[in-house]
Design a protein around this nucleic acid. Structure first.
Length: 495
DNA sequence: TGAAATGTTGGGGCG
DNA sequence: ACGCCCCAACATTTC
């Protein structure tokens, strides 16, 4: 610990520019690497490197790239307001860092740590090589409340169950305070070469991102606005609102957090202070309930650090022999929102259109894929990865393994969501369903959750042609559930 | 951050 | 008034 902190402090250095290598920390506030570089009182070169080929098979999907494009533009604009700018390059990180260091006469490179397996491996190699070339590489934490090695069990092993993890976190006491944004940024006498953000080719061709632009404002300001909106009108009703996909009852901060447009230390402080100010037991409970979600994010990142193989393989090894289905057409019906189960289809279409899905609905569609269709959780994880604007390897991995029952603190496999009951319980009036399934919009609340069970006259009156304008169910839930439980029992029996 | 079956309890109707 | 039954509401158990 002491050694780590010592390497994090920046000694006075000669006046050559410091490179700040920005990755999933596209913000000026609470950015430890940027703050450390600025504190040296010498010029700073903010640098983003686009190198998806170096990120192993988990290269960002198209929705994520759309977000990144917008976030980089926002960051560049904020830097320009301070008289600085963002340098953008593409290529292997090490090569680019060495080139930029040479072009700018820089000898120090700062960055904030990442925790995904491939990023760790790359950063370690980069750090080693840079040092081998006489350059100074300094790393900081701006992504997490605690480092993964800071919140383990007393015996030194990591927590695998959330509740004790959460309690240990709270016992640990104060979360570090967010760092202020730099008040000014000194420019180098000559900027290194930069490519244009356009040139990275992150924007979708052809442009299908209208739904994204309407739903989101990427960038640090958009992130802070989302947090303020949530604090003002979401947080007090969070415990009910979080489960109603028809309303904006959640913070919708996930993509902002993923790209580091806002950090967990800032949201923690903001919400804690608000709770103290309100001094109301019910508000306090809501605030804690939401901070718990931030802790789940923390838990996911600690898990992926300690168990890097879980991006592809189940944490519980016995699940390696689970007998999954292999059916491309079932997978396709799930991906495109054509399963015949309205709550599933509405969620999958919300995902496709906006790059995001309400968390309650994520659990429903995930359970449906894994239990009803018995398709491998990895196929769901991959689709989410390719389509979510908040695609995050740690959160995505933990979430899917939780649903499949093969991960840390996982739901028991026999816990099977009934899509009909979930739909009635969490979208009783069918408002969410109608928003995403216009072909069912004229069905009333009694039948919209299960059009396949509606009397023919009702369907006709609502203009619904089962198997024509809207699909019949691709599987029957009761039978599918039984098959899933049988497969689970076979796995447990070692058959 | 399940669902469904089973068990328990207590109010009210009724003989 | 009392006991009995019904059953809704809630709690517990099981998968």
């Amino acid at each position: 610990m002491l050694a780590r902190q010592a390497t994090s402090s920046v000694a006075a250095m000669p006046a050559t520019p410091t490179i700040v290598w920005l990755r999933a920390d596209l913000r000026l506030t609470d950015n430890a690497a940027l703050a450390a570089a600025t504190a040296r009182g010498i010029p700073v070169i903010p640098l983003f490197i686009w190198s998806p080929a170096q990120e192993d098979q988990w290269a960002p999907g198209a929705a994520s790239q759309w977000w990144l494009d917008a976030s980089l533009r926002a960051l560049d604009a904020s830097l320009r307001e301070m008289g600085s700018r963002l340098i953008v390059r593409h290529g292997p990180a090490l090569e680019v860092l060495r080139d930029v260091a040479r072009e700018s006469g820089s000898d120090t490179i700062c960055w904030n740590r990442l925790y995904e397996p491939a990023a760790i491996a790359r950063d370690r190699a980069v750090k080693h090589e840079l040092r081998g070339h006489g350059l100074v590489a300094q790393n900081f934490n701006s992504a997490l409340l605690f480092e993964p090695w800071e919140n383990g069990k007393d015996d030194g092993t990591p927590y695998k169950v959330f509740t004790p993890f959460w309690k240990a976190m709270l016992r640990r006491g104060a979360v570090a305070l967010p760092l202020a944004a730099p008040s000014r940024l000194l420019c180098p006498s000559k900027w290194p070469r930069s490519e244009s953000i356009d040139g990275l080719g992150l924007r979708p061709q052809p442009d299908w991102a209208a739904g994204m632009r309407e739903a989101w404002t990427p960038g640090e300001r958009g992130a802070r606005a989302a947090l303020e909106r949530f604090c003002n009108d979401g947080l007090s009703g969070y415990e009910q609102g979080r489960n109603s996909p028809a309303i904006t009852g959640t913070s919708r901060l996930s993509p902002h957090l993923h790209f580091g447009e806002i950090g967990p230390r800032e949201v923690w402080k903001t919400v804690r202070e608000l709770a103290i100010e309100r001094n109301d037991a019910r508000f306090d409970a809501a605030a804690e309930s939401w901070l718990r979600q931030i802790a789940w994010r923390e838990f996911a990142h600690h898990l992926i650090f300690h168990f890097p193989h879980t991006t592809d393989a189940p944490l519980r090894p016995e699940f390696a022999r689970f007998e999954w289905n292999d059916d491309e057409s079932l997978l396709s019906s799930w991906q495109h929102g054509l399963t015949g189960y309205p709550i599933v289809d509405a969620g999958m279409r919300e995902l496709w259109t906006t790059g995001w899905m309400h968390n309650r609905v994520r659990m429903i569609v995930a359970s449906f894929l894994v239990k009803d269709l018995r398709l491998p959780w990895q196929a769901g994880a991959r689709w989410f990865w390719d389509t979510l604007v908040d695609a995050d390897l740690a959160n995505n991995t933990m979430g899917w393994q939780w649903t499949a029952g093969c991960g840390a603190d996982a739901a028991p496999y026999f816990r099977v969501f009934n899509p009909l009951l979930q739909s009635r319980k969490f979208d009783p009036d069918g408002i969410y369903l109608r928003r995403w399934l216009p072909e069912l919009a004229r069905l009333d609340a009694k039948w919209i959750h299960e059009p396949h069970a509606a009397p023919p006259l009702v369907l006709e009156a609502a203009g619904v042609g089962l198997g024509d304008t809207y699909p019949a169910p691709v599987v029957a839930h009761d039978g599918a559930k039984r098959l899933a439980l049988e497969a689970y029992q076979a796995m447990m029996a070692g058959r």
